[in-house]
Design a protein around this nucleic acid. Structure first.
Lengths: 343, 343
DNA sequence: AAAATTAATGAAAACATTTGCATAACTATT
DNA sequence: AATAGTTATGCAAATGTTTTCATTAATTTT
């Protein structure tokens, strides 16, 4: 065989089956409208010719593209991997395919990605958080594609959202440390410039700490990206000092993991010498030794519900899609926090 | 404003700019063919109308769809998250968008996903490993879409591949343990039924162990999915026994991580009481305490090169795309393995 | 058995774009 | 100044589907 490229489109299938293209189309989309006998002929023709429908042609005709876009900061770290998986599972179960894009925490890049996904005529679009450029919000409004912000809940969000209240989460984590008697507190957060999740958590936590008149020594407040290696590194410096905090609030579990490793490496006992609390409760956090105390964000459920909302909006062809679903965060007390020792 | 849905297609832009649709198309695709002045008018019209090109229409016309498909078993665990990220970065950099699908280690599901991606007319397609159903291989051959298997290298692979030799990797890991004097060996692998990576590693390792006349007590060989929690669980049983191996070879770093936690939890010292070696060298493995000895698979580089190959194949519109790139695996000695104690 | 209804199929228009060919308006050459 | 060559643009065909409308065939009703 020379070139198998004898374009196998719907009319070649129709010819092979001895029917019209319209009938083939119907056999595929509304099988009940075509006689079983013809359907069988068509099935055989399809099988024989190795025909695969052209989704682009359907899309152009005005049908759904059958794709849903998801834009995340990154998928490399556990933070979003679980979410992506859950979202993809749910979306896929409903017959959609996922278009994935990641911007590395840069909101201008994100705008470009959103445009690209819109060029592909995604039927719906999910973003992470509510921090997005004005351009992004504008284009989403103009195109009127069902859009949903995943991860944080905000009763006044300009677009639909499914997630948790990050300020509350920061509060929960802070309260836990305060309740255990900690008054010398260190925090490790990523840059909060273009990350509303981290920003809300951090400022809420600081508020509580200040109200409790905790010592928030400047040098105990570190900034590091979401990376185990970098968090561990940063913590090695902090924890090696004689004058260190008694508790560490970490922006998320990845950072907390780094912090724990740093402590173990330095021979410090967690939680006796230092209490550590994370945020997220990612896969693996429960298995850490010692097991991580953290505030659980139900990533899988959030991802699944988000997908469900969007798929439903597409199916119902909703004009003005707007839902806001709030998930409750929950303190998961494990083994990395303990009552503060009186110094 | 009532409904912004005054379909803003290329002709409405053309009208607004006072030119023909063809000219607008050219301004977008071959800017050098249209006069700067007209280009400017068109730019303004586009800006004003909020026009976003319809990729589906281009695709249908025979142009590239601008998408590349990636089918993975899962993205939830660190195993593939890094790879997906690297692949996506590289693909995106070259102007493509990623269509992601995951099948949860089920090759029939995988076939369905591949078909779906082909319906979307992906310009190229990447799969993980070389274990795929006959249907999958057939449809890929028929459609003649540049396809590439990521993760393992095989000089006789039926499709292009970029990766490592998993048998070699299994050998490297086994040799390391043997060289350290271990003769009582436990292994923890996932089900090798539909996973050629694990299968190759495992059988190669067993070969070496047998050649060294190691004790491979049946009850020391465990099967568990790629999950920290389940691996830890399984290891708790194994390591609690009086009669336990002196070294553990883990199917990958995720499993190894679970094994380490199990050992720590039982108060065993790694590597004094038990040596543990992983495979993969995922993000975070170096930071573990104790740091994990493992065989490095350069996931990021593999993902990037894979994307590069595919993008190039698309750009050159290659008829018969076939490349095979081998990456060398490398033993990374860290702190979880040590010389076997004479019992 | 004729008329009316229903079921199955086909012809053709529509979808949003790209591109080959044709045309018109310049610019350069003699 | 007439001709040839170039450049910028428009027209219309083509891409692979779906769907409306029309037509024919089969079935039911009278």
């Amino acid at each position: 065989m020379k070139k198998q490229r004898h374009k196998t489109d719907i009319v070649s299938v129709a010819n092979l089956a001895g029917v019209s293209a319209a009938t083939v189309s119907r056999a595929l989309n509304h099988p009940d409208l075509v006689q079983p006998a013809t359907r069988k002929k068509i099935d055989q023709a399809i099988r024989k010719s190795g025909y695969i429908r052209n989704r682009a042609a359907q899309t152009i005709h005005g049908r759904r593209s059958g794709t849903i876009g998801l834009v995340v900061p990154t998928v490399a770290y556990a933070i979003f991997a679980e979410l992506v998986q859950a979202f993809n599972d749910a979306v896929s179960e409903r017959g959609f395919t996922l278009l994935l894009a990641s911007h590395g925490y840069d909101l201008d890049t994100e705008y470009g990605l959103v445009r690209k996904l819109l060029e592909h005529r995604v039927d719906a679009l999910a973003l992470i958080g509510l921090d997005h450029s004005a351009d992004t919000y504008r284009v989403l409004r103009e195109q009127n594609v069902p859009t949903l912000a995943i991860w944080n809940f905000d009763a006044e969000s300009p677009v639909s959202c499914v997630g948790v209240n990050n300020a509350e989460i920061g509060g929960i984590a802070a309260d836990h440390l305060i309740m255990l008697g900690h008054r010398r507190i260190g925090t490790i957060f990523p840059s909060t410039g273009e990350n509303d999740r981290a920003r809300s958590r951090k400022s809420a936590a600081f508020e509580r700490f200040r109200a409790a008149e905790a010592d928030l020594d400047e040098t105990w407040q570190i900034q590091t990206p979401y990376s185990i290696a970098q968090a561990k590194d940063a913590c090695l410096d902090l924890l090696a000092r004689q004058d260190r905090p008694t508790a560490l609030l970490c922006g998320n579990d990845v950072i907390a993991q780094g912090a724990i490793y740093a402590a173990v490496k330095l021979g410090l006992s967690v939680p006796k010498d230092i209490s550590i609390i994370g945020i997220g409760d990612f896969a693996g956090s429960a298995e850490l030794e010692p097991a991580l105390t953290t505030v659980r964000i139900p990533a899988r459920r959030i991802g699944a519900i988000a997908a469900e909302h969007l798929a439903a909006a597409v199916d119902r062809a909703e004009e003005d899609f707007l839902v806001r679903t709030r998930f409750e965060a929950e303190l998961i007390m494990r083994a990395t926090t303990a009552v503060a020792r009186t110094k």
